[in-house]
Design a protein around this nucleic acid. Sequence first.
DNA 1: TAGATTGTTAATCGATTAACAATC
DNA 2: TAGATTGTTAATCGATTAACAATC
Lengths: 228, 228
Amino acid sequence: MANQKNENRNKNGEDGGLRAQVSPVVVRRLPRYHRYLGELLREGIYRISSAELSKMMEVNASQIRQDLNCFGGFGQQGYGYNVKFLYGKIGEVLGTEDGFRAVIVGAGNLGRALAASHMFERRGIERIAMFDSNPAIIGKTVSDLPVLDVSELEAFCAREKPEIAVLTVPKEAAYDVSVRLAEAGVRGIWNFANMELKLDEYPDLYILNVHLGDSLMVLSYGIRSRMK
Amino acid sequence: MANQKNENRNKNGEDGGLRAQVSPVVVRRLPRYHRYLGELLREGIYRISSAELSKMMEVNASQIRQDLNCFGGFGQQGYGYNVKFLYGKIGEVLGTEDGFRAVIVGAGNLGRALAASHMFERRGIERIAMFDSNPAIIGKTVSDLPVLDVSELEAFCAREKPEIAVLTVPKEAAYDVSVRLAEAGVRGIWNFANMELKLDEYPDLYILNVHLGDSLMVLSYGIRSRMK
DNA sequence: TAGATTGTTAATCGATTAACAATC
DNA sequence: TAGATTGTTAATCGATTAACAATC
């Protein structure tokens, strides 16, 4: 069994500390590692080498070692990686331990679908409320969440200080709501509105624009190119 | 006004023909160009240079010219790009003219949310049916779509020949259903199940795994890194 | 024609992969 | 210790950007 004094080798300081800039392409690969490691854990596999993981994930073993090393030495020479430890570390890097809290703004079909999923809790994120402007649903409860009037957004955020806002409002409302959220101190917006949000005035705000429609077009291209 | 004999310059043959291999990173950028061009069109702007588009989209102008040139010379020296023409061309490249038809398998929250969106029709894709295994909803109509028993999947596909399947079933059912869809002749699967589909036995099948949860984790990382 | 802007080649930058010394 | 496998440096590959000749 590997001992786990790995933290000592983390070149970028302890967990709370500032990290050297990590490339976004690496960050985007981390959740996939996390998923595969979670799967291994469920299968009762507690140890894995970059070569084995490489085969499973169809990713080059060098890349795996490089990626994981951006955040410190999580493995052990001659042994490989401790699955549970690595899973936990990647989770930490991705913020699952930070106890973020989320509001969902827009209780339409997509908002309700996201609210109903276990996606948030699985990643250590607590959903705390939904907001909408439709009087017909304000006051109701959707997937254990109260649906509040969007006019209460500022007061609620001042009180509860959610870090995350999921934006599932119509395109037309998206910009307005996002500014209000930014002003209210939200730190990240997960934007599903079919418009690209960019709020340069709030450099501390992280916005992730999803664009499912773009994904659908890539699918369409993929089909087309395979049919030729 | 630019004349539009641009097609002649398409190095990779006419539209129906086989194209030189285009890098996936370029393909993933195309929908974004398409969106911005659609927006310009709506604003009544009919002509744009790579430099102007570059400024709007915060993408290097060289990259724009390189990207667009993968599919043929869509612009005109000294003039720029004809917005309408370019919009149409990118749409064609992405398959909006191919009249693809889609079924949605899994009429849960997410399936219904996708069914209700205008995402498909906007991209020239026709939704033709939903499938589920829950007797409580089979036979109903959701967003104008009949909800059919998933046991009818094969018969339906043999008859209607949809190219696209949207997979919004629970993780446990995903693999099974995907094989059935592949056998039934579907050409592309848009997979929202929280598991990575890979069907090597069907090389003509294009699978796009979405993983919203991964996106949420990237958001979480983004927030975390901005808070330091 | 002169000016503008593309298409395209060449230069740079960054990401991936290979190789191997360090070390468990 | 010998064997295995990481961490890390160096080599390769691909993607981005710059530059400019072609041309509208």
